[in-house]
Design a protein around this nucleic acid. Structure first.
Lengths: 206, 206
DNA sequence: TCAAGCCGAATTGTATACAATCACGCGAAT
DNA sequence: ATTCGCGTGATTGTATACAATTCGGCTTGA
């Protein structure tokens, strides 16, 4: 529903009134309003009184900014996880990692990917940090749904190795390496996402 | 309204149904729901189906986590602001700073304080980072309203000097010093907030 | 011609009624 | 005694009607 409002065809500055959204989804204004409020919380629309919701621009610049913040959060969480290294969380991380590895399909298993990132985030010991990371996970997931999941495929083996680097560094309690490995991993993800959105833009132009 | 729901007397795990909130405020469920959703977005309550909203615990640990994340965001923004150093933003920062300094009253002018932090955040050039920082500004403001503003008074001169350190470092394009100055500033703020919440808890116990 | 003021349509904000869902307690069967 | 199942009441989710606000255009006057 929330993703439905963002069908990928909007341009920054486009406006959508609640009435239009109601017409498009066949539900009443109440859930539409809540969805719009949630999108505002994620920073994807700006709600203005009696003017409709205006979509925030979402091009390469915004994607770069988004991944910069995500990286800031997750790198710090990784560093903290390496310093604390609690056994329960290590097991959770490894379980999530093996789930991704054994999946082995061509298309990446984003759910397991999120589980791993969540495990690392919670291993940081900072619940609010973990919550913010989860929020960015939602945002990225939403982006995937808009852009089309298949557009992000074909990076599976690479990500497995990147995850492995991160986990090994955490197990060694090597916080600097762990942070750097996570930084590299997210830089890769950012590049991949940028490519996918560009391809998506071209699809729309056709 | 949002702050009203959190009157400072709740304990973590307490539940509040929409009906109770309606009764307490004399407004209908619609705005109550929106307020609760916003509180959920800020991570202060957890909304569970047919169970009412359960308040998140908010003690010293949570406060520490909160300021850790806030510091992570604002320190990075300060660093970026120092590397970019665009003239317009410098002027905005100085204007906000002088407003705080010339205020000179005993009670800190939190509105101007937020303006300065906002100016620094936007000078980072990362709009999403600035948006997250603004979100944490709201959260801290909310906390002040709950805890009682007066409880945080008496730190005015200290914060002026801290702000000055940050601005001077940014003007020198000394990103390391600027980041460190912001880190110290927020560590002070965290201590101050911790003290205020503790005092508040004692007030309630009486 | 331009500006000021006002009116109406459009849009959001709020209240309330109704539907769906779930928790909790009771009772019966094993 | 414990557990399973069910029914009822409570609570949230949704729809819709109404109030408040605001934007745009039109008129009117200088």
């Amino acid at each position: 529903m929330i993703a439905g409002l963002l069908d990928g065809t909007w341009k920054g500055g486009d406006r959508l009134t609640e009435a239009e959204a109601v017409e498009r989804f066949g539900v009443s204004r109440t859930p539409v309003r809540e969805a719009l409020l949630e999108l505002q919380g994620l920073g994807l629309v700006e709600l203005r009184r009696n003017c409709g919701a205006v979509f925030a621009p979402f091009g390469p610049d915004e994607l770069r900014d988004l991944y910069a913040v995500r990286s800031l959060l997750e790198v710090e969480a990784t560093r903290l996880a390496a310093t604390r290294l609690e056994k329960d969380w290590i097991e959770a991380m490894i379980a999530a990692f093996e789930k991704i590895r054994d999946q082995g399909g061509v298309d990446p298993d984003w759910e397991s990917d999120r589980e791993l990132h969540t495990a690392i985030a919670e291993a940081s010991g900072n619940r609010r940090l973990a919550a913010e990371i989860a929020r960015y996970g939602e945002l990225v997931q939403l982006m995937r749904e808009i852009v089309g999941e298949q557009a992000l495929g074909g990076i599976h083996n690479t990500t497995v190795n990147e995850h492995l680097d991160i986990l090994h560094a955490i197990e060694r309690r090597d916080e600097a390496s762990a942070a750097e490995a996570m930084r590299r991993h997210l830089a890769q993800a950012a590049d991949s996402a940028a490519g996918a959105t560009l391809r998506r833009r071209e699809e729309i132009r056709e």
